[in-house]
């Protein structure tokens, strides 16, 4: 299930503009890796290159190598659609399909790959995914109601259920809690702890307590200067990053003496 990600020498461009420069890192399976850094430092951009979602932005492209176990996701005959069903994503703003019921939202991605799913298979998958997202008890009596009727935190967990229903090996989360209240945030963080049993999880966050709470390893990104591309400054065990970072820049950011 969970797979290792190996990035080497990755540059990301928006047209002529180099947005992220020369990132190399290894992301361990069955662990949570947090990306921290100030806004605009390229951590979200870099996250999106891990499932080729950056290609949705016109003019964006990446140079370098990203290995998912043995598969080079930028290989010449690799289909980005396939990459994305292996590497799922949860976004900053919960985005369930507004016209679909809770049930249909969960099953939407899985239906794409397996059109002939029987009713009972689908029911099982919906229940399994919603249970996995700690949402089943809250919605089991209203599966046919629209997903947009849920609270923000529930919607985000619905999006996580939708992503896991596709059975990816990696789950990317782009600031999944930044629009949520503390209680809902806690629910998501608990969920992340459970999910790392089965998935490789990468989370971008602006909340350093959150990074400290949920992640095993932390990567700090920063701009090399105004108007310059973003870079990976340092990456290591979360404990060590927050207590004894190797670089001065990291320490400044973590202790709030930044900028």
């Amino acid at each position: 299930m969970a797979k290792r990600i190996d990035v080497s020498g990755l540059h990301v461009y928006y047209g002529d503009f180099l947005a992220v420069e020369d990132v190399s890192m290894t992301i361990e399976p069955r662990s949570v890796t947090a990306f921290i850094g100030s806004s605009g430092c390229g951590k979200s951009t870099f996250l999106r290159t891990l499932n080729r979602m950056h290609e949705v932005t016109p003019g964006a492209y990446a140079r370098g190598k990203v290995l998912l176990d043995d598969m080079d996701i930028y290989g010449p005959d690799v289909d980005p659609v396939l990459v994305r069903s292996e590497v799922g994503m949860v976004f900053q703003k919960a985005n369930p399909f507004p016209t679909m019921s809770i049930y249909d939202n969960v099953i939407a991605g899985a239906r794409l790959n397996n059109r002939r799913m029987s009713r009972s298979e689908a029911d099982d998958l919906v229940e399994e995914s919603l249970r996995g997202a700690n949402l089943w008890e809250e919605v089991k009596d209203r599966l046919n109601k629209p997903g947009s009727g849920l609270s923000g935190g529930q919607q985000q967990r619905l999006c996580i259920a939708r992503a896991t229903a596709v059975k990816p090996s990696v789950l990317l989360m782009d600031e999944p809690c930044s629009a949520l209240d503390p209680i809902s945030t806690l629910a998501i963080e608990d969920l992340i702890h459970q999910l790392k049993e089965d998935y490789t999880i990468v989370i971008v966050t602006h909340n350093m307590q959150q990074a400290a709470r949920v992640s095993d390893r932390t990567a700090f990104f920063n701009l090399s200067g105004p108007g310059k591309p973003g870079k990976l400054i340092e990456m290591g065990e979360t404990n060590q990053m927050f207590t004894r970072p190797e670089k001065k820049e990291t320490e400044n950011y973590i202790t709030g003496r930044f900028g």
Binding site: M53, F97, L112, V166
Partner: peptide, 25 residues
């Protein structure tokens, strides 16, 4: 954009993205 990316991020092709996110909207 969130709806379109939601579809693409779970492995939808462009046509599937249109069917899931664009046409209903």
């Amino acid at each position: 954009q969130g709806h379109r990316e939601a579809a693409l991020a779970m492995g939808a092709t462009r046509w599937e993205m249109i069917r899931l996110a664009v046409l209903p909207f």
